[in-house]
């Protein structure tokens, strides 16, 4: 029952939109400080009040891709007998975040204008 409810509630925002927003969200969280995979997901869920729920497994290929581009770097810390991998944002990461921020804000502005009801002039 619990599993069924979980499955049902997972798609709050459409899959395509989630995929498109993953990189700017990850970079924004890492801008606040170094973090590890599980905690990044937790922060996303908390900040979005549970509206944005990722398939947790989709985060790791994104982190790898960002690592390959040199946007982030990782280091490992041993915590409670386990290796925990932390990510830290790099210069190209900041630049990419700024670029994406600009794109999302202008898109948001366009949609805002399109959806705001205008008073018709008689």
């Amino acid at each position: 029952m619990y599993v069924w409810i979980l499955k049902r509630n997972m798609k709050v925002i459409s899959k395509d939109l989630i995929a498109a927003s993953t990189i700017p969200i990850v970079l924004s969280i890492l801008k606040e400080g170094d973090d590890y995979g599980y905690n990044i997901i937790k922060k996303v869920t908390e900040r979005s009040n549970g509206n944005l729920k990722w398939n947790e497994g989709s985060l790791y290929p994104v982190l790898l891709k960002l690592g390959q581009k040199g946007c982030i770097r990782s280091y490992t810390i041993k915590e409670r007998g386990r290796n925990r991998k932390y990510y830290t944002i790099q210069k190209p990461g900041y630049a990419l975040l700024e670029k994406l921020k600009g794109e999302w804000l202008s898109l948001n502005k366009i949609l805002g204008e399109l959806w705001t009801p205008t008073v018709s002039k008689i």
């Binding site: 398939n55 947790e56 497994g57 989709s58 290929p61 790898l64 390959q68």
Partner: peptide
């Protein structure tokens, strides 16, 4: 209050499908 077995099942669902995960890694590597 979930048992370890239930928690594992939930963790698997939250993680997403195995096929999607493999597909994503294939794209990156």
């Amino acid at each position: 209050d979930l048992s370890a077995k239930e928690a594992f099942e939930v963790a698997k669902i939250r993680f997403g499908s195995v096929q999607d995960f493999r597909k994503e890694y294939k794209k990156v590597r």
